[in-house]
Design a protein around this nucleic acid. Structure first.
Length: 377
DNA sequence: CGGGTCAGGGTTTGTGCTAC
DNA sequence: GTAGCACAAACCCTGACCCG
């Protein structure tokens, strides 16, 4: 205490209380937020601040005063996101975060506030996936605020709140794929077959050009995908991942269908689009889904999404005994994790095998053939 | 210390509604 | 049938973490 202090200043105010001040790393003079009864308390406070600065732990006490709405908008703006993600985040912000937190300062967003917000969201009809997504976005933003030294800790502390368990999707059988294909307009028949038996994604199928289909070598080159934006505009982009760029072999059973489709419905020219609407437009999800659901209703196949056809493709491929690596390359997955989603398919297959073995056992014992086995996948 | 697993987070698909 | 828009749900890549 004796001698000249090296860090900060303490002075006695006319009121008799003590005020501490120091120069922050940013060069600004920073008075303590409150005054102290004794000089000793003021000194102790300064010592704390000095420690923070030495550790690089210091943060601007004004930094967290930025309104969350403004901070969040900048967060999205500064990030390199694809147009679709940018739109999605903007939508989550606008509809779910902004109304509750927009005017609140970043530093004031506390765990209890977030818990209350989440409970309210879940009970007010917003779907669990969307709540989880909005929560995840909020946490990502608050995480950046921590990195920016605006706040010390991320207030998003609810464990597991950003993930939702999604139930397993159904898988269409070969027969169902054909039934659905027949129930669709002829121009979309082959689209369904290719989704089911090649396992291509919607965006990939829509992005196909004539030159991508090599009838001679019975292969489809997937080189781009079409993403649809809210604005109705489309973005042509490389597939979801580098592994998405791939060549997929065509089962010869549907080769005639593809050949026929190209002759009848595809846009002319090597750069012509393979799948176009009745008036020449690139198909849109909303309209196609309408047709799809009609086909589902017509065939009595309920609860089947178009994307589920992709599972059929993978399940079929898996049932041939293809290795995980082979499946990954066919489906355009870059990690085994994604491919392992189809583990259930193998389990089903294994059960079928077990059933078949069981049939053989009975046959061997009774000396007569057993009835028909379950539906083959 | 390398393979398996999990959570975070970016991207795509699903669907309803209105308008032309 | 096509287009625009908005919200919701699902997919799946990536890096962190765990564990033997």
């Amino acid at each position: 205490m004796a001698g000249k202090r090296q860090f900060g200043r303490v002075r006695k105010l006319p009121s008799g209380r003590y005020q501490a001040r120091y120069r922050g790393p940013d060069g600004q003079d920073r008075p303590a937020p409150e005054t102290f009864r004794t000089k000793k308390d003021a000194d102790a406070w300064l010592a704390d601040k000095q420690t923070e600065m030495r550790r690089g732990d210091w943060h601007d006490p004004d930094a967290g005063k930025v309104a969350f709405g403004a901070y969040a908008a900048a967060w999205i703006r500064e990030r390199e996101l694809t147009a679709t993600t940018r739109q999605l985040y903007g939508s989550l912000l606008r509809h779910h975060l902004e109304p509750s937190f927009g005017a609140v300062s970043v530093a004031e967003i506390s765990p209890p506030l977030i818990r209350a917000w989440r409970t309210d969201k879940l009970s007010s009809g917003t779907g669990p996936t969307t709540v989880a997504k909005a929560y995840a976005l909020l946490r990502a933003m608050m995480g950046t605020a921590v990195a920016d030294q605006m706040i010390r800790r991320n207030p998003c502390t609810i464990r597991g709140a950003s993930t939702v368990h999604t139930p397993e999707r159904p898988t269409a059988t070969v027969q169902e794929v054909y039934e659905l294909a027949e129930a669709m307009q002829p121009r979309y028949r082959t689209l369904v077959l290719m989704a089911g038996f090649l396992g291509l994604r919607w965006g990939e199928l829509i992005g196909l050009h004539r030159r991508d289909i090599d009838l001679e070598h019975r292969a489809v080159r997937v080189r781009r995908a079409v993403a649809e934006l809210f604005s109705g505009q489309r973005e042509i982009k490389a597939p979801k991942s580098a592994a998405g760029k791939r060549t997929v072999a065509i089962p010869s059973a549907i080769l005639p269908d593809i050949r026929d489709h190209l002759e009848r419905y595809a846009e002319p020219g090597a750069d012509g689009r393979v799948f176009i609407g009745a008036r020449g437009a690139t198909p849109r999800r909303n309209h196609f889904n309408l047709l799809w659901r009609r086909a589902c209703a017509e065939t009595g196949i309920n609860g089947m999404h178009f994307h589920d056809l992709r599972h059929t493709g993978n399940t079929l491929a898996a049932s041939t005994g293809a290795s995980t690596r082979e499946l990954m390359s066919r489906m355009g997955h870059s990690t085994a994790r994604a491919a392992l989603i189809y583990q259930h398919a193998s389990a089903d297959r294994d059960r079928l095998i077990a059933e078949a073995v069981s049939g053989l056992l009975e046959k061997g014992r009774k000396g007569r053939p057993h009835g028909r086995r379950g539906e083959a996948i």
